[in-house]
């Protein structure tokens, strides 16, 4: 137990870095994922094909592969990073955006076809139909699954700890090495700080879900 109190500065530093990774990757993934979902329902066949291929490949390969790509393969191709955080953010947002794209797409499919037809019949273009009518309704229905994906993202960010990024899990490993006799308490501390992010996220999901539900 004492080990947690003693190591609070490390925990705090790790916590902030995990939060940073999750927030930045989360925002990028939300944007990229929504664009991928839009591409998936667009009338342009090439966009649909690209989006489908991306989602299928990324969603069906382990996150570790994405990290290897970002941290090892990209630098070999000449893309170098000052910090491993950048590689971690690339890997996490590339990976998470595939899941977000699928969630948003299912939301788009849940909006009745008549909504799009009515919008088209008053002369809206594809972009307007999507941004003014379909996505605002779709995003409300996908808030709960999106939050689930973001919670997974917070936990997935621990993989960065294995790639030299000192976030929560990275510090956890270090502390466990230094305090071999109190490994359990070290890990309890790590778990506590993860819960500090994920539990409020779940709570937000619940509140948002109640607020934005639309009656039909």
């Amino acid at each position: 137990m004492d080990v947690i109190i003693e190591s609070l500065p490390q925990y705090w530093d790790g916590f902030l870095r995990t939060l940073f990774l999750a927030v930045v990757s989360g925002i990028i993934a939300l944007i990229v994922g929504t664009l991928l979902a839009a591409a998936r329902v667009s009338p342009v066949a090439a966009l649909r094909g690209f989006s489908m291929a991306y989602v299928e490949v990324v969603r069906n390969t382990p996150l570790t592969i994405a990290f290897f790509f970002a941290a090892v393969v990209l630098p070999r191709l000449g893309v170098t990073f000052q910090q491993f955080e950048i590689a971690a953010i690339i890997a996490l947002s590339a990976y998470t955006s595939a899941f977000i794209a699928e969630a948003v797409r299912s939301g788009v499919n849940s909006v009745p076809l008549g909504q799009a037809e009515a919008a088209r019949s008053i002369g809206m273009t594809f972009g307007q139909v999507l941004s003014l009518i379909i996505l605002p309704q779709a995003l409300r229905t996908v808030v709960p699954p999106l939050i689930n994906i973001l919670i997974a993202l917070v936990k997935n960010s621990s993989v960065a700890g294995a790639f030299f990024v000192l976030e929560l899990f990275g510090y956890g490993k270090q502390l466990a090495n230094d305090h071999g006799d109190a490994v359990m308490w070290v890990l309890v501390g790590v778990a506590f700080f993860y819960l500090l992010i994920t539990v409020p996220l779940g709570y937000v999901a619940h509140q948002v879900e109640r607020k934005v539900a639309i009656a039909r």
Partner: peptide
């Protein structure tokens, strides 16, 4: 061309 549908299709949001 104005269109009126069987199922109204008012924008629900």
């Amino acid at each position: 061309v104005g269109m009126v549908f069987q199922s109204f299709n008012l924008f629900a949001h």
